[in-house]
């Protein structure tokens, strides 16, 4: 046997003293794998309880792209509610049709639901809108995330309806949410935060819930890694065109040097939500003239988009 090289131990877990796997800078402590898993599951259960995101009788559609966030979300929700008779979980996967990217994540999603024994519904852009995202984006790659976002939102809701869901859970994490606040500021459209929040659901929307809102991306990745469910998946090829990419890199740099920045950015969202509660961003919610979906103008974003795509 080779002599064991002298190795410096990592910092000790602030809870149990075992070697830590992560430095939670926002909380000023170190955690080992076991305590990180416990911490995240406790915090997510806390978010769900405090906002009454899931209540007895709910059927929760869990948006499952197969990427890290949605994988962690489904694992956590399954641990929390998997054995409950009064709460049903259904995973919903949207296949946008992105060659060289979606195949792997769709397979990862299928593997996970099989392992957990969760119901699974897949909806594709092809069946819903007549073509793949790759086709829609020919000559308009710069708008990729905007176009995909509108179509995917519709597809998710279609899947959730098919599941008979009363809630739609997505894996948006703290980084995503903080980026969105900043992006809306940069676009001069802060009130979009209120319009998109889906909180003002008056029975016409399936309410959206985001149980991972207060969990950092790195915590989620580490959560999966220490449990052996991390998969190194490709990044969406269209993401290079997105403003989000620049905002993400800038914001994570600031967060590293000034821990807590992301949480504080989210505070702005709460302030605006409170200020505009019940006003839906000053716009009355009506119905789309063409498809009947709830929208703020005459025609919804989706119908406008489909026209511009020549559908």
């Amino acid at each position: 046997m080779n002599p064991v090289p002298v190795q410096q131990d990592p910092p000790a877990c602030s809870v149990c003293g075992e070697p830590a796997v992560i430095h939670q800078r926002h909380a000023g402590r170190y955690l080992c794998g076991t305590d990180l898993v416990a911490d995240l599951e406790q915090r997510v259960a806390g978010t769900i309880a405090s906002q009454q995101q899931v209540v007895p009788g709910d059927c929760v559609a869990v948006a499952l792209s197969g990427g890290k966030d949605s994988t962690a979300l489904l694992v956590m929700l399954h641990r929390l509610f998997g054995s409950r008779d009064d709460i049903r979980l259904v995973a919903v996967t949207v296949d946008e049709g992105i060659t060289g990217y979606r195949e792997e994540t769709v397979r990862s999603a299928a593997d996970l639901v099989r392992k957990l024994g969760v119901e699974h519904i897949t909806v594709s852009f092809g069946e819903l809108f007549g073509d793949s995202l790759d086709t829609f984006l020919k000559g308009r790659k710069a708008q990729a995330c905007t176009i995909c976002g509108i179509l995917r939102k519709k597809a998710l809701v279609a899947g959730a309806k098919r599941a008979g869901a009363t809630k739609l859970a997505t894996g948006h994490n703290l980084d995503d949410e903080a980026q969105s606040v900043l992006m809306n500021v940069l676009r001069g459209d802060l009130l979009r935060l209120v319009r998109d929040s889906g909180r003002e659901s008056s029975g016409r929307f399936i309410p959206r819930i985001k149980p991972l809102t207060y969990v950092q991306e790195k915590e989620i990745a580490t959560y999966l890694m220490v449990q052996g469910i991390w998969e190194d998946l490709p990044e969406c090829p269209y993401a290079i065109h997105a403003l989000r990419r620049e905002v993400r890199s800038m914001l994570s740099g600031i967060e590293y040097r000034h821990p807590g920045t992301m949480l504080r950015l989210l505070e702005n969202k709460k302030i605006i939500e409170t200020a505009f509660s019940g006003k839906a961003g000053g716009e009355a919610v009506g119905r789309c003239r063409e498809c009947g979906d709830p929208c703020s103008g005459e025609t919804c974003q989706l119908c406008q988009l489909l026209h511009s795509l020549g559908r």
């Binding site: 990427g67 890290k68 966030d69 995503d176 991306e217 790195k218 998946l233 490709p234 989000r244 990419r245």
Partner: peptide, 8 residues
């Protein structure tokens, strides 16, 4: 070094 890619 394992990169945490965006996408959820």
């Amino acid at each position: 070094i394992i990169r945490i890619s965006h996408g959820g």
